[in-house]
Design a binder for these strands. Structure first.
Lengths: 139, 139
DNA sequence: TTTCGTGCAAATGGTTTGCAGTGGC
DNA sequence: GCCACTGCAAACCATTTGCACGAAA
């Protein structure tokens, strides 16, 4: 996603929720936007540091919490640690039970079935995580 | 699942993998079989203790690892802790992002779409976790 | 100026590990 | 008897929390 677009969206969403637009929030959104996959809190912190930024790890955690609550960021529990990604749109993942690799799933087929199934139990779905074995680990 | 059936299956699977049939493994399998939902390591440990059994918590973890590797048990990463359940068959769950409640999803519709989608990326699916908001938390 | 957000450091708690002893095969 | 498995206690490490300072509105 384009940095300017992220900045704009971030500002807008934060304002809508009466949350302040801070550099911590922006740099985390930027970092997530610059990454193709999901990142852990530690990875985000590391990337910001490497890029010359400065942000305390506990602030990363707190900020991710707020952003998750606000719906800007999406949380994905993993085997050992939680990872985060920009909440772009219904976003489906395949997580390998052995090596932990996360890959995106092209959603269309799944989306319809999901909607129907979720409706049956009054559940409002945000994303689907399929766990199993990735191609490499099937050996 | 019936205790005798569990015991038999446990013995059989363990033997097939040259793993020993121990009381720790059996009591964990029993505990999981007696529960309708998934349980955390701590809950399993607590239930065994309450039932008069004795099993060290670290043994519970190690045993669950081995059983998971063996495919007897199924691991489900949650927000704060990992939970485990008997690996009975493609098993689908809806996990609430807010309260963490796990509910089962009647699978049929989802299962077909899943199979097709997974095949496209050569992923071998074991289970599907839908995250979102449960009915109670949609308020 | 009033809150809300952040840095820092210490605490928390689920999970892992080293080592010595025990039980399955 | 051999070696995988277990108990115990200590270590680990991701995440959380308390408090005081600093910055957004």
């Amino acid at each position: 996603m384009h940095p300017d677009h992220i900045r704009a969206r971030c500002r807008e969403e934060l304002r809508a929720r009466r949350m302040r637009f801070t550099s911590a929030r922006l740099s985390i959104m930027d970092t997530l936007g610059a990454s193709t996959g999901h990142l852990s809190a530690a990875e985000i912190h590391h990337r910001i540091s490497t890029a010359g930024g400065h942000l305390n790890l506990s602030t990363v955690y707190r900020t991710l919490d707020r952003l998750t609550e606000s719906g800007l960021v999406h949380r994905l529990p993993g085997q050992a640690q939680v990872t985060y990604g920009l909440a772009v749109e219904p976003h489906h993942h395949a997580v390998c039970n052995r090596c932990g690799t996360i890959q995106e799933i092209p959603a269309p087929a799944l989306a319809d079935a999901l909607r129907a199934t979720a409706k049956a139990i009054a559940f409002r779905p945000e994303s689907v995580v399929v766990t199993g074995l990735c191609p490499a680990c099937q050996a």
